[in-house]
Design a protein around this nucleic acid. Structure first.
Lengths: 252, 252
DNA sequence: CGACGGCTTGATGGCGCTCAAGGTGCGTGG
DNA sequence: CCACGCACCTTGAGCGCCATCAAGCCGTCG
């Protein structure tokens, strides 16, 4: 597998940072990052890209950088000795690769591109200094941390206590929601580059079984799903499968 | 279920804080919290306790406080509509109830005491101010956050890709390690208040199946397990079941 | 003592895995 | 242009891990 392409650092690229024209800029971390012009001056950044299925960062390898995904989809993946793999999280544009990388030298697990991908790199030390200086930035990172935590909790509940049908319905609804935050959606149709094999590796299933359930959903008229595109035909019923069947999450 | 006992706040308790004599004080968060005497003066704290199986904090309820577990065992739990439950994490003395509570008003899920329990409460606003002022404290919290994240990731891998035998062996080894960090261990014997039903709710299994596997381990001479006490007789073999059978976690 | 919670053990069955064969669409090279 | 390989999906057959249901045991506690 070839190495990650380097987009050059700020030093060898006198043009303004791509962030100035990025549509992500007014939201989330990016917003906080660029809120104070004095901060951004001290924040060195560089850019890179990767091709589908390419490894961006190998688990356990140390890295000076914190990555921000600018375009495309990325998985965080754990690989077991016998070839089985578990996808720990799915990242969309605007997500940090892992809030954990802000604090520790190495990420425990690998990052792999699902689609063509572009990302920004920040120096961890720069970022930490900026966080110490800027409370808004600090809060934004805290928020990211909390969101990652919540996603992990929900996945734990899915894997521990829900059957395949519920897991798949929930994954679809969850991702549709996140895609909808980022792009305009028409007629319930979403760009959806996940393979069924990827869905299986997120949900602790086999691709064979995912295929059966998806086929079942399709035949029931709930979704259309082909060519990297997902269309949700009956969001109501899918939502019921996703949460109401076995009850929503709540207090004890 | 009765309400949580209140140990009184610093205001109505002129004696020195229990923390001054706490064995946990030289470690982790507590160490950072008390590192600067100027900080602790501004940090209001109160103390409380709970009985076994008592609910300490209901999921979704807002709270001004951040909790630190001083003594005993606590579960973080998600409850589904149909009665099924999933334990999201197991907390031991010295753990924060959830790093998430530092930042958000309410914890998503419930906290339930497994044993008799004592805990300290801090005002979230005080704590955040202290973090902004004290870099060491900030780092300590970041560390906690990262550790929680890692534990969640490992549980996801267990639930997604490992069978019951591996899950149980790993849970035992994992908890034994954490208990060993806190107390002196003789002859591989650990205090272990978890019921088999609790282990099932952590590992996405049924108590019946946990019983079968534990019985199998016992008959194989790997462990002794009774009366709230666990003894690991063959740590080597148990460790192999826990990770080597299906390979360790690593890079892709 | 009876009630109760927790553990054990057996019988049965289903959800999802494994193995396998075949279909479809796409890119590549003859 | 078609042949071919390849990745991905689909579908079937069979089976195994683990759930479910149920009965009984044991220790504790009111």
């Amino acid at each position: 597998m070839e190495t990650v392409q380097d987009g050059g650092s700020l030093a060898d690229q006198p043009e303004p940072s791509p962030c100035t024209t990025c549509p992500l800029r007014p939201a989330g971390i990016c917003k906080a990052l660029f809120a104070t012009s004095s901060e951004i001056g001290t924040l060195r950044q560089s850019f890179g890209g990767a091709n589908p299925r390419q490894l961006i960062h190998a688990g356990g390898e140390p890295s000076r950088y914190v990555y921000m995904l600018c375009y495309g989809w990325v998985f965080r993946i754990a690989q077991l000795g016998d070839g089985r793999r578990q996808i720990l999280s799915v990242l969309l544009a605007g997500d940090l690769f892992s809030s954990r990388m802000i604090f520790s030298e190495s990420a425990e697990y690998s990052f792999q591109a699902l689609t063509h991908v572009r990302f920004a790199r920040f120096d961890r030390s720069d970022l930490r200094a900026a966080m110490a200086a800027n409370l808004e930035l600090f809060d934004a990172f805290a928020q990211v941390c909390a969101n990652e935590r919540k996603a992990a909790d929900e996945l734990i509940i899915d894997l521990g206590r829900r059957n395949a049908e519920e897991r798949i319905a929930r994954l679809i609804m969850h991702l549709a929601g996140r895609i909808g935050e980022r792009t305009v959606v028409r007629d319930g149709s979403y760009p959806f580059p996940l393979r069924q094999n990827d869905m299986a590796d997120i949900l602790g299933l086999t691709s064979v079984h995912v295929s059966r359930i998806i086929t079942k959903f399709r035949k029931a008229g709930l979704i259309e799903f082909s060519g990297g595109n997902l269309r949700i035909l009956r969001p109501q019923e899918l939502a019921e499968l996703a949460s109401l069947t076995r009850g929503a999450i709540g207090a004890a």
